[in-house]
Write a protein that binds this DNA or RNA. Structure first.
Lengths: 136, 136
DNA sequence: CGGGATCCCAGATGATACTG
DNA sequence: CAGTATCATCTGGGATCCCG
């Protein structure tokens, strides 16, 4: 049944048109997918999905090799999109906690589906890629 | 049940660890997601999913504003990953046709799920983003 | 027709230093 | 602690020209 939906191609044409058009200069589909599939964005969402609530440096230490600047930028974007909630506690030293919103959790769930696909098919792809390289 | 899988966070921790680690210098999860969520890759997959088989310039014209170079690069990558099949007909002038492989169709289906999510939640995100901008 | 090769720029990203 | 600001760098991607 999975293939049925694909073979007829109707849905794909609709999606293609949707992804290939812009409203007010932006294409929601492309724009949003591009943003969420960013390296640090993906890791941030997964980390917050797995650990619930994290402080800035906790998140930074978990991801490991992200620069402070990029984590800040990433989290600001996610906050602006309503995917992450940022809570500032007026203490000294300051404490800032991040967590996924309901929208964020919903997105996170969708991303697990994609990740599952990659888990199943990733090795085949990497292998294919490697073989392809050796031909040249 | 969707939330159950997320609230406990177990699966997310696993996925996070998976996406945050590398084997032989590459992380399949991040690497593959980054590649497929590229603007032109996404549009190419959708177009081939919807129209089946397309010649180079047919595909180029459908997408519209893609440069020749980028479409070539995109298709070469997809071919190397085993997602797109490239067939050259030894004619003059040359004819080259592109189509999704079984792996490609499987991936395309997964991407429709993500696109569906964006279709449902995209406007909310864009609106949230716009409101967020106006605060500054 | 379907590319390959080259040049080049804007924007993304990292490193570093400073601060409320 | 959790950033901001600035500078340096590096890369994606477009423009252009050429070719089998």
């Amino acid at each position: 049944m999975e293939n049925t939906a694909i073979v007829d191609g109707k849905k794909f044409k609709e999606i293609f048109e949707l992804a290939n058009s812009t409203k007010n200069g932006v294409c929601p589909v492309r724009d949003i997918i591009a943003r969420i599939s960013d390296k640090w964005t993906l890791l941030s969402i997964y980390a917050l999905g797995g650990y619930g609530t994290l402080r800035f440096n906790e998140l930074k230490n978990k991801i490991g090799d992200v620069s402070q600047r990029m984590l800040t930028v990433t989290l600001r974007n996610l906050e602006a999109d309503g995917i992450v909630k940022r809570t500032i506690y007026p203490e000294v030293p300051p404490r800032v906690e991040y967590e996924l919103t309901d929208l964020g959790r919903s997105l996170a769930f969708q991303l697990t589906l994609l990740t599952d696909w990659v888990t199943v098919n990733g090795e085949v792809i990497i292998k294919h890629r490697t073989l392809s390289l050796n031909k040249n």
